[in-house]
Amino acid sequence: MSEDGKRSLSVIAFIGSVFSPWYAWSGRRAPENHVCINVATYGPGGRFTMTDRGSDALRQSRDRFTVGPSSLHWTGSELVIEVNEIGAPPLVSRVRGTIRLRPVALTSVEMPLTADGTHIWRPFAPTCDMRVDLEAPGWQWDGHGYFDANFGTRALEQDFSYWTWGRFPTASGSTCFYDAKRLDGSELGVGVRFNRDGHAETITPPPKSPLPRSLWALRRESRSDPGYKPRQTQAMLDAPFYTRAAVKTRIEGEDTVGVHEALDLRRFRSPLIKPMLAMRVPRRARWTFD
């Protein structure tokens, strides 16, 4: 998110593109044949890019992850993301430039989201300084961000019906909340406070508070101090089953604006969703590196 709160972006690198209809239709047998670097920018001139690419486009090394024309490179002190993608309809245009994330500290936290470890959350760097330099007017700015990962051996909709997640910057670092309802009827409700030195400690999450439903009428809720009503400050991604937004809340007496996500996996299982997604997520099976 930019320092003035007017622009933000997200970058998600996939091996086995979780929300790709092409990966689902393939039976999810070959995750390396459905790879993607999804880039979405929010604010004036915002664009959404998500191209499902085949294994020809994938290159990996210890410090670099490349999918076709875009890549992520860990230098030892920062994550450098080189973007060269095409925005999805109706705003078809190139999204190109460099994003740099410099972690304040790295963590060693690894949190299972299910009892048998089929889904794991790995917050590498919940607090980062961020520099954005994209080839578009107004898309050169500094701000704050985070760097995390999710790993899984099963599809999300096989284990969950609904979840929300939020990361909120604080004076001492960042606080994250993970809430999920599993298909077996159990629930996950975790709060983690990350200090600027990378130390993590679990906290008792404050109460859940409802947020207004999304444009697709997706139910949303966040965490906040008792008596405080969270509110959306910036709309980001809005899909029939998934929403991302900047949300202002209050945690332990401190007002903060962070990124909030809600995901309805029951909706995602609908057979109507995959064809809709295919319109926004093109498939490019072949790639040749120069």
Rank of each mutant, 00 (worst) to 15 (best):
S10M: 09
V11C: 08
I12G: 01
G27V: 03
A30G: 10
P31K: 06
T41Y: 02
G43W: 05
G43Y: 03
F48T: 05
F48W: 04
G54P: 08
G54E: 05
D63T: 14
R64T: 12
R64S: 15
V67E: 07
S70V: 04
S77P: 15
L79A: 13
G87C: 04
A88N: 02
P90A: 01
V92S: 12
V109R: 14
P123D: 07
A125M: 15
A125F: 06
P126V: 11
T127P: 11
D129V: 10
L134M: 08
A136N: 05
D148V: 08
F151T: 11
T153W: 04
E157P: 13
E157Y: 04
R167K: 01
Y178G: 07
D179M: 15
K181N: 15
D184F: 14
G185H: 13
E187S: 08
L188F: 02
L188W: 03
G191M: 10
V192T: 14
V192M: 05
D197E: 06
T204C: 15
P212G: 14
A217L: 02
A217D: 08
S222D: 06
K229W: 05
T233G: 07
M236H: 04
F241Q: 00
R244D: 05
T249I: 06
I251V: 08
E252P: 13
D255H: 06
T256Y: 12
R267W: 15
M276G: 09
M276V: 01
P282V: 02
